[in-house]
């Protein structure tokens, strides 16, 4: 599934896995009802501990984003997309909050901060196209 896991960046690995699955669901790369690779396959692909993958799956199952299909494996639940989108939004908001907090701490002027935000926003639009 070509996720990228960085065990050293401070975010727990299982959380990285959950997040990336959710983002994939949110962006539509994985459709509801589609099968996800098994714990073993995903662990092999990502070269991480299967327990970690299992934990991520469990989390996602608890949030009802994934469900076990008897005999076959794990699949995305229907209606998961909306949850994932909102989760993704929350993640982005948390990140922005952290950045703003840091900007505050570094005593950046509000105007400067706004200018930076606008500039980056413009740049991102360009990159998208």
């Amino acid at each position: 599934m070509f996720f990228q896991i960085n065990p050293s960046n401070g975010i727990p690995v299982y959380e990285q896995v959950s997040r990336q699955i959710m983002f994939a669901v949110a962006s539509g790369s994985i459709l509801p009802g589609e099968m996800i690779p098994s714990v073993r396959e995903l662990a092999r692909e990502l070269a991480i501990n299967p327990n970690t993958v299992a934990r991520a799956f469990r989390d996602l199952q608890d949030q009802n984003i994934l469900q076990t299909v008897r005999g076959t494996g794990v699949a995305v639940t229907h209606g998961a997309r909306a949850k994932c989108i909102s989760a993704r939004t929350r993640v982005i908001r948390d990140r922005l909050r952290d950045v703003l907090a840091e900007a505050r701490q570094s005593q950046l002027d509000e105007a400067e901060l706004q200018a930076i935000i606008d500039a980056e926003f413009e740049n991102s639009k360009k990159r998208k196209h």
Binding site: S38, V39, R40, R58
Partner: peptide, 8 residues
């Protein structure tokens, strides 16, 4: 742990 194995 609900790991699924390939082989019994």
């Amino acid at each position: 742990m609900s790991a699924s194995s390939v082989r019994p």
